[in-house]
């Protein structure tokens, strides 16, 4: 049992090492950073610049955060500070369900609803012609997928703030919202940042749903109405052919390793913050 208990900690390292070992062939040919920041992607010529994909990921993630953060935080504040018990009990399973829906389902829904919405309504509204398969569509779908993460982590953070602290603010004649703004949000700031970072890393690695709506064009997006090609989508789309082109699978494994590194960084950061918040509350 003791041996098994050491598995989780080592698994993280093992995955990282495994991916880098498999990426070694391409790292032997080209320096790491030139691969990261080169925009040339043509596997047949041996160009494996990951920059467009990294930027694609960043764009989609950014859009999703802009959409998800205000909605999620307001929802979390409502549920923890305003809602009566019955509403809270009613909403919690809904948020759990939202978290439990498979990403393919989000993808199908995105294709059915979000893509036409972007292509036919939002883009023309801004005077742009667009197929709808865009960074924006990916961002919208992703935003909904990270609602549950941000909401539930924020809820945990808010519940760790002593009720008496709110009472102190209320007893001074502050309104509920003033109490939320000056006390709850302020006291919970670190935890909220952690919640957002966790949502961000979720968005970063999400694959299928984004892949289905984002257009998959290996070019740097210049606006939210351009198609994009995030890293996870690159991995998913090319699994079939990667054995036939030299260095291709090494390049993809490098992409996976980069993805993992970024996600690990954000995750560890967020968890460290949360551990601190928890310890202070205890």
């Amino acid at each position: 049992m003791l041996v098994l208990t050491c598995v989780p900690a080592f698994l993280v390292l093992l995955i990282l090492v495994g991916l880098f070992v498999r990426a070694r062939p391409i790292l032997a040919e080209k320096p790491f950073f030139s691969l990261l920041f080169s925009s040339a992607w043509s596997p047949l010529k041996g160009d494996f610049g990951l920059f467009p994909f990294i930027m694609g990921t960043l764009w989609v993630t950014f859009v999703s955060l802009v959409l998800a953060v205000p909605v999620s935080l307001l929802t979390a504040v409502f549920l923890s500070e305003y809602a009566p018990r019955s509403v809270r009990e009613f909403t919690k399973p809904i948020i759990d369900l939202l978290a439990g829906l498979p990403s393919v389902i989000y993808g199908v829904w995105g294709v059915l609803l979000v893509v036409p919405l972007v292509g036919r309504i939002i883009a023309p509204f801004f005077g742009v012609t667009s197929s709808g398969y865009t960074v924006l569509a990916g961002g919208i779908v992703l935003a909904i997928m990270i609602f549950p993460t941000i909401i539930s982590v924020s809820l945990e953070v808010f519940s760790s703030i002593p009720y008496q602290m709110r009472e102190a603010s209320l007893s001074l004649g502050a309104t509920k919202w003033e109490t939320v703004r000056h006390v709850v949000l302020k006291k919970g700031l670190q935890g909220i940042i952690a919640a957002i970072v966790l949502g961000l890393s979720r968005a970063f690695g999400e694959t299928m749903a984004v892949l289905m709506v984002v257009g998959n064009i290996p070019r740097l997006p210049r606006s939210v109405f351009d198609g994009g090609y995030p890293l996870p989508a690159l991995l998913a789309n090319n699994y079939g052919e990667m054995m036939s082109v030299p260095l291709y699978d090494a390049a993809l494994m490098l992409a996976a390793a980069v993805l993992l590194l970024v996600v690990l960084f954000f995750n560890v950061l967020a968890r460290l913050i949360l551990v601190r918040v928890e310890r202070r509350a205890a």
Binding site: P8, I15, G205, P232, L259, L260, V263, L264
Partner: peptide, 8 residues
């Protein structure tokens, strides 16, 4: 580990 994307 929970945070690692499924594609990885």
């Amino acid at each position: 580990l929970w945070g690692i994307p499924s594609i990885v």
